[in-house]
Nucleic acid binder design. Sequence first.
RNA 1: GGCUCCGUAGCUCAGUUGGAUAGAGCAGCCGCCUUCUAAGCGGCAGGUCGCAGGUUCGAAUCCUGCCGGAGUCGCCA
Length: 594
Amino acid sequence: MDIFADFRRRIIAILESMMADGRLPETLDLGRFVVEPPRDSTNGDLATNAAMVYAREAQAHYKSPRQFATALAAVLAEDPDVDTAEVAGPGFLNLRLQPNVLGAVLRESLADAERFGRGRPAGDPRPINVEFVSANPTGPMHVGHGRGAVFGDALANLLSFAGHDVTREYYINDAGAQVDVLARSAFLRYREALGHNIGAIPEGLYPGDYLKSVGDALACQHGDSLLAMEEAAWLPRVRQDAIDAMMGMIRDDLASLNIRHEVFFSERSLTVPQPGHNANAVEEAIEDLDRKGLIYQGRLPPPKGQLPDDWEDREQTLFRSTDFGDDVDRALRKSDGSYTYFASDIAYHKTKVDRGFGVLIDVLGADHGGYVKRMVAAVAALSDRKVGLDVKLCQMVKLLRGGEPVKMSKRSGDFVTLREVVDEVGVDAVRFMMLFRKNDAPLDFDLDKVIEQSKDNPVFYVQYAHARGRSVLRQAVAAFPDLDVSAKALATAKLDALTDQGEVELIRMIAQFPRIVESAATAHEPHRIAFYLHELASALHTHWNRGKDHPELRFVKEDQRDLSCARLALVGSLTIVLKAGLGILGVSAPDEMR
RNA sequence: GGCUCCGUAGCUCAGUUGGAUAGAGCAGCCGCCUUCUAAGCGGCAGGUCGCAGGUUCGAAUCCUGCCGGAGUCGCCA
């Protein structure tokens, strides 16, 4: 249960009845006010700005926002769940709830631990597609890819937790010139495997050692038979083998971060005719736009800034992306007549629209910023504005060690791989740190700091809070050997003993979890979960420590079984929320720190 | 030059979609271990929310214009 959403509904009902009675104008847009925690919790449990939001429209009925709020307060005070309803400041309405309301939330979190905080499928029932990583299949993943990978995966977790049907998807760029370069690079390694002296890797080919095994495999499979062929003959075969090998490597890299995609979509598949069609997907997508009158032959103004050397003014096939908010119309064919990357991307996104997704999310590197408007335009055009595309750009990751930038080795191809980082600091640290920042802010990742076991390290700090909670439950069993500390059992504890301010504060924070999930999911911002967990962990550590100066506040009181049970219910609920939140981030919730 | 993102405490960053006296963590100073884990906690100090206008009951948040930083700029992917 989300008490904020719940009371928002109750207030809507009140406003509606006031509208029906003529106590308010009938035209109010009831979607505009909010119910949220008051900034200062001494003001109560819930606050709403409804009276201020509608003050202007209600002026004929209530002179001031405060007067309106007073009227609203009078009705709300009748609600059996409300203790007090007070008007504050310019017209805020602060509600203090009966203790049993928050208690019910706590009880619910224990009784149905698996579901607490989860959203119900509501609103747009269409599934959401999250496309992320989509690293070129030309080598192992590096740290920058890792950020997008973790972000996309956590976002997918979050949306799924919030009640949406989510598909994780990877777009394999296996059709461009870069995979031909990959094939030639692999062919070189193939010759090397056959004993040829290949010397230095020529400029323009991929030099990485990771292609040696591809060369070995080719030699093993084909012997020297490829050597006699023309490039046009061997390239397609070598290319596919190399791509498969690279994708295998990338899947392993992703698996090391516990990331799995449901769909791997091949760009190349868009360029071959589909069964039962006489055109390929790219051609069909462009025909589709053409039928909508969005394709034309025309000229583009030269690019601003530095003019490319080979700029030529020519007539070309253009998409009217400016009809959908882009700055300039975009080219769909290169000068040699082949399609641009944008054209296949349009076709690719058309498949997403056709597959019935209602919301598309693309997770890309910040260097793709210039690409956003045209892609949003394309999706709007393809779906007649019925499908939204949200492009989440992840900023760069700066890798540090002890505060100093990690030198990227100049030995070409030998960059710091994602795998090296995961192996050094662990999945949990990588995932949490990548999510403990907004996606559009650059990230410093310090290899030394993230394995530190101290409060300076938020990963550790949050995990420790969970472990501490679990430890308390273990201690409780030691004190009361017959006690059942399972969540289900704790849900039946008498909770009215939880009266200490710190305890109430913790319950309030637990009650916020559902709305944090909801708002983070709506905003497509998983970092909000990470920050919430950090605050929750901090609150737990704080309260735990108060038990030092005030032994009567400790969770386990051997001579007071009922009181202990109530407090253990609180601890149990905290571990449930911490674990659920960490689960969204894809970070483990250990029972003890060792 | 165009577009996108960013600018909040000495440093690194949050800020619940326009709310109440702008918050954390580092770093600095002062405290707390016969105790369910001190791997932690409390307190003090620290601010012209880049600048200037505008919108309104109310702006760090929305709009405009500047200043500063990052990215990007027909057919590359």
